Amino acid sequence: MIVTVTANPSLDRTIVLDAPLQPGAVQAAASTREDAGGKGINVARVLAAAGASALAVLPLAEGDPYGTVLTAERLAARTVPVAGHCRANVTITDPAGVTTKLNLPGEMPSADELTALQNAVVETAEGARWVVLAGSLPPGVPDDFYAQVITAVRERWGAAAPRMAVDASGPALAAVVARAHPDLIKPNDDELAELTGVSLDAADADVDALTDANDLAQAAARLGRALVPAKVGAALITLGGRGAVLVTPDGAYAAVPPPTRVRSTVGAGDSSLAGYLLAESRGADPAACLVSSIRHGAAAASLPGTMAPRPGDLPTADIAVAHL
C-alpha cells in the first residue's frame, strides 16, 4: 500500500477557454470542472486508477463541499476532523495548454489538529511501502512539519517503517532535506535550483543557455548528485516538456516524453511521481521507473483539469533512457 498525505487540500476549479486569456477583458468559458485537489490526492488518484492500493490522509471539516467531491470519486481516504474548510484553487487553461493558476492559502490549523494529522499518518503508515508527503503546508504550520512526520513514522515503526517520499517546495522542502533524509524527493527544475541555491545555467558551465533538453538534464543531474545520497535517497527531477532526470546512489538517468498535445499541466508532476511509485512498487529498475514516470506525466498533461490518467491514457511510443 502507498499512503499519501495532503496537509493543505484544495477544491480545484478548472476553467477551459476557447481563446487565449485576456487580462482585464470579459471572456466566455468553453467548459469548467471541479475536482478534489491537492498533490497527495492527485497521486493517490493516479495510483488507484492503475489498480494500486492507495490511501489518502487529509484534514477535512464536517460539511466541507470538498468532502462531497472526494466521496464521489470513491477514493480510499482517512480524514482528520478540523474546523476550517479547504481552500479553493482556480486554474484557467487556453487552447494552447497555457495554464494560469490562482491558489488560495488555506485555513490555519490549530496545534491539536496538526498533532492529530501527524498521528493519523503514523498509524496508517503501518505496513505501507511508501508514505508520500505532498504539497504546500497550510498557513502557520512550521516549515519542518514534514521532517517531524518522517521522524515520527520512523521512530514508531523502526526497521519496518515505509519509505518516505516528499513533493514540496521552498522552506518545507529545504527543511526536510536538511533534517530527515527522505528516501525520495520530486522537485521540478525551479524547485531544485531554489533548494541547492544554484541555477541550472550555473550548474552547466559548458553552455550559455540551457535550451537543449540534454544540457538541462546534465545540469539537473549535477545538482541532484550533490544531494544523493548524502541528503536524500534519490531525486526524481521533472523538467516539464523536456522530460525528467532520476538520480540514485548508483547513477543518473534522463529521458524525454513523446510528443504530447498539452491540455492542462495541473497535476502532471503529481502523476509523474505516481508513475514512479507504481513502477518501483512492482520491482522495476531505475530506468523503467523513470519511463513510467514520464508516461504518466505526459498522459496527465494531455487531459483536462486534474483528471487522473488511467492505463489506457498512457502514451505507447518508445521512450529512450540515457545513463548520464
Rank of each mutant, 00 (worst) to 15 (best):
Leu273Ile: 03
Ala254Val: 00
Val3Leu: 12
Leu21Cys: 08
Ala202Trp: 02
Asp64Asn: 08
Ala213Asn: 00
Ala125Trp: 15
Asp285Leu: 00
Glu194Asp: 14
Tyr253Arg: 01
Glu194Gly: 06
Thr91His: 10
Ser199Lys: 01
Thr238Cys: 00
Leu137Arg: 14
Ala83Val: 13
Asp35Lys: 05
Thr79Leu: 10
Gly24Asp: 04
Ser110Trp: 09
Leu246His: 02
Asp212Ile: 01
Gln218His: 12
Val131Arg: 01
Ser31Pro: 09
Ala288Glu: 14
Asn89Cys: 07
Ala50Cys: 13
Val90Trp: 10
Leu173Lys: 03
Pro315Thr: 06
Leu246Trp: 01
Leu246Asn: 03
Glu155Phe: 05
His85Leu: 12
Arg45Met: 05
Pro95Cys: 09
Gly241Gln: 07
Asp212Leu: 01
Ala217Gly: 13
Arg263Gly: 01
Glu126Val: 10
Ser136Glu: 06
Pro258Thr: 15
Leu227Ala: 08
Asn42Pro: 12
Ala61Glu: 10
Met164Leu: 13
Leu192Gln: 04
Asp208Val: 15
Ile41Ser: 05
Arg156Tyr: 02
His181Arg: 15
Gly275Glu: 03
Leu192Pro: 11
Gly63Gln: 14
Thr4Asn: 05
Ala147Val: 08
Tyr276Ala: 03
Tyr66Ile: 06
Ala29Phe: 11
Glu123Cys: 07
Ala308Asp: 08
Asn103Glu: 06
Leu55Cys: 13
Ala221Glu: 01
Thr68Glu: 15
Ala159Met: 06
Asp204Thr: 00
Met164Phe: 02
Arg13Lys: 12
Val26Arg: 09
Asp144Asn: 15
Arg310Ala: 14
Asp94Thr: 11
Val5Ala: 09
Ala160His: 07
Ala134Tyr: 04
Val176Lys: 03
Ala317Gln: 15
Asp206Ala: 11
Leu17Met: 12
Thr124Asn: 02
Pro138Glu: 10
Pro286Ala: 01
Ser281Asp: 12
Gly140Tyr: 09
Asp215Arg: 00
Ala52Trp: 02
Glu126Ser: 11
Gln148Cys: 13
Asn8Cys: 09
Leu324Thr: 02
Val26Leu: 08
Pro20Glu: 04
Ser264Thr: 11
Leu17Phe: 06
Ala76Ile: 09
Ile150Gln: 08
Ala221Arg: 01
Val166Gln: 02
Ala29Thr: 08
Ser302Gln: 05
Val43Cys: 07
Leu114Ala: 11
Val247Gln: 02
Ser281Asn: 07
Ala72Asn: 11
Ala48Val: 14
Pro59Asp: 10
Arg263Tyr: 14
Met307Ser: 14
Asp35Thr: 10
Ala274Tyr: 10
Ala83Glu: 14
Thr265Pro: 04
Arg33Ser: 15
Pro259Glu: 12
Ala28Arg: 09
Ala76Phe: 13
Asp206His: 08
Thr4Pro: 07
Asp35Gln: 13
Leu70Asn: 04
Pro59Val: 10
Gly63Val: 15
Tyr276Cys: 03
Leu11Cys: 01
Ala36Thr: 10
Val166Ile: 08
Ala298Gln: 00
His181Asp: 04
Pro105Ser: 04
Arg225Gly: 04
Ala268Pro: 11
Asp12Glu: 04
Gly140Trp: 13
Ala25Gly: 11
Asn188Lys: 02
Ala7Met: 14
Ala284Glu: 08
Thr68Lys: 07
Gly127Arg: 08
Met108Cys: 14
Asp250Leu: 01
Arg154Cys: 05
Pro65Ala: 07
Gly283Ser: 13
Ala193Leu: 01
His296Trp: 12
Ala50His: 15
Asp35Trp: 13
Gly63Glu: 11
Thr306Ile: 07
